[in-house]
Amino acid sequence: MLKCYDCLEENKDTEAVGVCIVCGKGLCMEHIKQVEFPMKGGGYPMPHKNLKKGLPRMLCKECIGTIFEDGFCD
């Protein structure tokens, strides 16, 4: 069974419930975070527009900090 990477660094043995889509670490409920990224629909020849609901993505706290602090995501 996949173990939580962050828990293993803290000398805990916890099963992972998901995987960070950026770095691939296995994460438990304590360390995983769900973030909704805005999505655009349409395309050529149709104009782009924002969809009503973003797509949920699972990330670790480190990757969330990197993405939002370093300006990778508006």
Rank of each mutant, 00 (worst) to 15 (best):
L2A: 13
L2M: 11
L2G: 04
L2N: 11
K3W: 06
K3S: 06
C4Q: 03
C4D: 05
Y5L: 07
D6L: 07
L8M: 12
L8S: 12
L8V: 09
L8T: 08
E10M: 13
E10F: 08
N11E: 14
N11R: 13
E15A: 03
E15R: 06
A16Q: 00
A16D: 00
V17M: 07
G18I: 01
V19G: 00
V19I: 15
V22L: 10
V22F: 03
C23N: 01
G24L: 02
G24P: 01
K25W: 05
K25V: 02
G26R: 00
L27E: 05
L27H: 04
C28V: 09
M29H: 13
E30Y: 07
E30Q: 09
H31G: 02
K33M: 10
E36T: 15
E36K: 15
E36Q: 15
P38M: 12
P38Y: 11
G41L: 10
G41R: 09
G41W: 11
G41S: 10
G42K: 07
G42C: 08
G42H: 05
G42V: 06
Y44C: 10
P45W: 05
M46Y: 14
P47G: 07
P47R: 11
H48S: 12
H48W: 14
H48L: 15
K49G: 07
N50R: 13
L51N: 05
R57Y: 14
R57A: 14
L59M: 15
C60S: 01
K61P: 00
K61Q: 06
K61G: 01
E62Y: 01
C63G: 01
T66M: 09
I67E: 01
I67V: 14
I67P: 00
F68R: 11
F68K: 11
E69Q: 12
D70T: 09
G71M: 05
G71E: 05
F72E: 08
C73K: 15
C73Q: 15
C73M: 15
D74E: 15
